[in-house]
Amino acid sequence: MPLFSEAGLPASYVPLSFSDWQQRPEWPAVSLANTDPVEDLAPHVGRLRLIVLNFPKFSDGRAYSQARLLRGRMGYRGELRATGGVLIDQIPFMLRCGFDSFESEQKGFEEALAKARTLFSVVYQPTEDGRIPASRLRLDHTVAPTP
């Protein structure tokens, strides 16, 4: 499946399935099912270079939570790749949850990815993408608009 990322194609590691990786936890790349216990990666995130999270269907949103736990709770800094049911219209959500590479067969994906960060110039939630939510911007009275 074609691979896309904002920063150009990253160095390639071959990810192991979670059960294989548990046998070889020194390996820097792992692929999780969305039912695998993401918490188990916590002691290893400093070493991991690629974590692949799977969307069995685009409508199955469990991997969004896995992504946020990896980025927010565990401080994972390596590549976080979405695979499976990955569609253009999910990119803004995925970026906000910390994904930075994507496997997708949908036509026009690259163009959509280039525009995805600017599709919404306002966000309401604090997440792992570092964007400042509207509620915080409002507290900074130098930028907050008057109603």
């Binding site: 949103g61 939570s65 946020r68 999910q90 803004p92 995925m94 949850c97 966000v123 309401y124 509620s135």
Partner: peptide, 13 residues
């Protein structure tokens, strides 16, 4: 309302 609007984690519950 604001917190839930386009919540990136909870749009495919």
């Amino acid at each position: 309302r604001q917190w839930s609007t386009l919540h990136p984690e909870f749009s495919f519950l």
